[in-house]
């Protein structure tokens, strides 16, 4: 089973701070991590490889600093890694990003493409399904578990709000995974030492069959009109009260609002 995994390097959003004066994001010194859902995807790929054999190839589109992430994935056990990096890619929205990723994937024959459900910075959960559409292969989002792979058919559990679906789909196919799908293993020192120097593939715009009109800011159907920080004005003054007064105040407040339901 040959597997492509889509991985993205993201800022550790729990560390993000906002400049109170300007409302802008303070990016300086923010550590980056591998998007958590993508680590799940990598682990799932490793487990599938252990059972069904094959090859795991990770793809990321991003700045050259994403190489560090790919080296870490080598240490985790993937077989090949490709960085798609070009100034012309900058500012791509999910449509353009998926278009770029899909054109790189088209150069290979994969049985399965695994994407994370969503990236914690973009947070759209769109890139996986869009890549599947560009590759003209079926996809299932929100995969909670891969049950098995038999005769080219993949059996998965999909997690919907009120029900679990068991679905069969023929490969090649794409799935997007929830963090329940696999629990990333710990890396061992030996692998970190031995594997993180494996060579990385690097592709630029010229290596791909994409037109400049379809990538980057220009090729992105969506545009950011503005960004703002909503930590608006405080609605009401705060009160510091002892517990008894506080409880009384709360109950009076509820009463004044028309009582409890």
């Amino acid at each position: 089973m040959n597997i492509a995994v889509l991985v993205k390097q993201v800022p550790d959003t729990t560390e993000i701070k906002i400049d109170k004066e300007t409302g802008a994001l303070i990016r300086k010194g923010i550590p980056t991590i591998t998007n958590p859902d993508d680590l799940t995807g990598v682990e799932l790929a490793l487990q599938l490889k252990e059972t069904y054999g094959g090859n795991i190839h990770a793809f990321t589109m991003g700045p050259s600093s994403a190489k560090n992430m790919l080296r870490e994935l080598y240490a985790r056990g993937i077989d090949e890694a490709t960085l798609l990096s070009d100034k012309a890619f900058a500012g791509s929205d999910t449509w353009a990003t998926s278009h770029i990723l899909a054109s790189a994937l088209k150069k290979h024959a994969f049985d399965l493409v695994i994407a994370g459900r969503q990236a914690i910075d973009g947070d759209t959960a769109q890139v996986g399904p869009q890549v599947a559409e560009f590759l003209k292969i079926p996809h299932v989002s929100y995969v909670d578990r891969v049950i098995d792979y038999n005769d080219g058919m993949l059996k998965v559990k999909k997690n919907e709000e009120h029900r679990m679906l068991t679905l069969n789909l023929p490969t090649p196919a794409l799935i997007t995974v929830l963090d329940e799908a696999a629990k990333p293993r710990y890396m061992n020192m030996f692998d970190i030492f031995r594997r993180s120097h494996l060579p990385l593939n690097q592709l630029t715009c010229d290596d791909l069959d994409v037109s400049l009109a379809d990538i980057g800011i220009k090729g992105s159907p969506t545009k950011v009109k503005k960004t703002f920080n909503k930590s608006a004005t405080q609605k009401q003054p705060k009160q510091t009260l002892n517990p008894e007064q506080a409880a009384r105040t709360i109950l009076d407040f509820i009463e004044a609002k028309g009582g409890q339901s």
Binding site: W95, Q126, V127, P129, Q130, E133, H139, V140, E161, P221
Partner: peptide, 29 residues
Amino acid sequence: TVKGRELAPRISARVHTGLTADATQIDLD
């Protein structure tokens, strides 16, 4: 919903248009 977030991006890729996820407010420009 899970369905909508699976379906909408696929449609947007097929018809070549932009898709904004998880809108919390929609205004007219």
